[in-house]
Write a protein that binds this DNA or RNA. Structure first.
Lengths: 280, 280
DNA sequence: TAGTGGTCTAGACCACCGT
DNA sequence: CGGTGGTCTAGACCACTAA
C-alpha cells in the first residue's frame, strides 16, 4: 500500500524531489528476526531513526535549533503529527529540547536545565533552607594520565586490553571539605589531546567539555552503587580514618549507538550528603 | 468559546446527559496563582485528573480494565485522541497499563511486569550467566510492633509525634546468607489490623499486600543512599564484623495525593550485590 | 469476527516568543 | 505580527487479542 488510507481522494504525491522518504505508510513489517515475533516499525519510529542519524552526524549541533515540525514534515513527506510523535520521544529521552514559541533544539550539557542531569549527590539539608538541589561543589584535577587499559577497564569500555586510555582523577569539595574522589577512564582514541592543563583551563561540567571539544555527547548512563571500606590511600585523600565507610558509585556512560565511552568511579564520604534517587 | 474550532458546521452537542464535562474546549485559564505566571490547563489534563480521581476512589480496582478509549471519550464528551493523550501520561507514570487488543488496566503490584519496580538491588553477576535482573531473595519477618512515632519518623510520614505507627523488621536472604535488613514504618491508622501473623501468611511483594488488603497503592518513592558503619546490633544481625561498611537506603513511598505512607530503611551488605540505577 | 489499542492524516485554533 | 510548538478534532485503517 502506498498511500494513506485517510487520504481524501487527493492527487498522488510526487515522488523523489531529493527528500529521503520512509519505506511506506503505516509502518513497515521488518523481516522476522531469528528469535521472537516479527516486529512492526511504525512510521514515526523511522522518522525518529532518521532524526537520530542527523544528530549523530552532526547535521545540527548541540544548542542549535532543528528545523520546524512543518519543515521536517515536508522533508520526510509525512504529516506534522507523525513528526511530532517522533520528536516527542526524542525529547523524552533528552536528545532534544522543545521550547514553545521558539523551536526545538539539540540538547546540550551546557544548558542549566540539563547541566546536572547525571548528578545525584545532594546535601543532607538544603543550603539556606531552600529547596533541595544538586550540591554545589568545586573540582580540583589531581592528575590526568595516558596508559594501557587494565583488563577490567577495557572490558567495561569495550576496548581491547592494552589499548590506550586516559585516566583522570579529581577531587570534589564542598565548603573546603573533600567530599568525592572521582576516578574517570576514557578511551584514548576518542579523547586525543585531552590533558590536565586543558581540564584545568575549562570551567563547567566535564560533559560540556566532551561535547564541545571532542564531539562526544553523553546520552545515558548506568550506575552501580556499593558501600566499601576506605583503604589507606583513599582515607588519606578523603581525610577520613582508614576503614571508614564510603559510597562507591560506578558509572558507565554511553553515547550514540549505545557505545560506552566513560567509566567513572566516585568514592564518596556520605556524612554530609547522600545519593538521591526517584522511583517512578 | 464553547465549540471545537475544527467542528465542521455540526449540530451543537447536547449538554448535560449526566456526563461530567470539563470546563471548556481547548483548555482553561486557571486563575493566576499568587506567584508565577498564570497556568494553562489543557483539556487532556482535566481528563487525566478525572481519571486519577476515579482511580483513587476505587471506581476501577487494581488489575481491572478501565472503559475503552471510545467509551471514555463519549463519557467525557471529548475526542478519542484527547482521552488517549490523558491515558498516555498515566501509563507513563505506571498508573495504568495498556495492552494492545485487550484494553487498558489499572496497574497492580501483583503483576510480574511491575512487581519489582521499586527493587534496585541486583546480584553482582547474574545467576547462571543469564541477563541481569532483580535479585531473588527470601524474606523473614523478625517482628511487627505497634508503637508511638518517634519525632523523626513522624516528621517524614507527616504524622503528629506520638501517633501510633507500625514498625516491621525483616531480613532478606539470598542463598541462605543475610543480605538486607529492612526496617519499615507505616502509619497505624491506615494499616489497622496488620500483624506479624498476617505478614507471615502472605507470600509475595509487600506492596501487593498493602494494595489488596488495605486499599493503599504505592505510586512513587524517593530514596536517599548513604554508606554507614555497622554498629554492634546491625553487625550481629547481618553477620558481619562491627564497623563493616553498609549501604543504607532510606525510602519514602507515596500514595495518591502525594501522601507519604511508608518509610523504609534498608541496611545492605553489598559484597555480593549492588544498587542499580539508570540515568536517562 | 468484533473490539481494543496503535498509527496516520488533515485541518483548525491556541499559547507563547521574538521582532 | 509571523512563526513555533501545543491542543483538539474527526475519521480511516492497521495490529493484536479473544471468543
Amino acid at each position: 500500500m502506498n498511500h494513506p488510507s485517510g487520504d481524501p481522494g487527493g492527487a498522488p504525491r510526487p515522488a523523489g524531489r531529493g527528500a529521503s522518504r520512509p519505506a511506506s505508510r503505516h509502518g513497515t513489517k521488518t523481516a522476522a528476526p531469528a528469535h521472537g515475533a516479527p516486529t512492526f516499525a511504525p512510521l514515526y519510529r523511522q522518522i525518529q531513526a532518521l532524526l537520530m542519524r542527523s544528530l549523530q552526524e552532526g547535521e545540527w549541533k548541540p544548542g542549535e535549533a532543528i528545523p520546524s515540525e512543518t519543515e521536517l514534515a515536508a522533508r520526510f513527506r509525512v504529516s506534522q503529527g507523525t513528526v511530532r510523535k517522533a520528536i516527542d520521544e526524542l525529547a523524552a529521552g533528552h536528545m532534544l529540547v522543545r521550547r514553545q514559541g521558539r523551536g526545538t533544539f539539540v540538547a546540550s550539557h551546557h544548558e542549566v536545565r540539563t547541566q546536572f542531569r547525571f548528578l545525584r549527590i545532594r546535601p543532607d539539608e538544603p543550603a539556606g533552607g531552600g529547596a533541595y538541589a544538586a550540591m554545589p561543589m568545586t573540582s580540583h584535577i589531581l592528575d590526568c594520565r595516558r596508559l594501557r587499559a587494565p583488563v577490567e577497564i577495557a572490558r567495561l569500555l569495550q576496548l581491547r586490553t592494552g589499548e590506550t586510555v586516559i585516566q583522570i582523577r579529581r577531587m570534589l569539595e564542598a565548603d573546603g571539605r573533600p567530599e568525592v574522589l572521582d576516578e574517570i577512564w576514557l578511551p584514548g582514541a576518542r579523547f586525543r589531546g585531552l590533558s590536565a592543563e586543558r581540564l584545568a583551563a575549562y570551567s563547567g561540567p566535564l560533559y560540556g567539555l566532551f561535547e564541545a571539544e571532542f564531539g562526544t555527547r553523553m546520552i545515558r548512563a548506568t550506575e552501580r552503587l556499593k558501600a566499601i571500606a576506605a583503604d589507606a590511600a583513599l582515607a588519606r585523600e578523603l581525610d577520613v580514618a582508614p576503614g571508614s565507610p564510603l559510597l562507591l558509585v560506578e558509572r558507565l556512560t554511553y553515547t550514540y549507538e549505545d557505545r560506552p565511552v566513560e567509566l567513572r568511579r566516585g568514592y564518596s564520604v556520605t556524612t554530609n550528603h547522600h545519593y538521591y534517587n526517584e522511583l517512578i
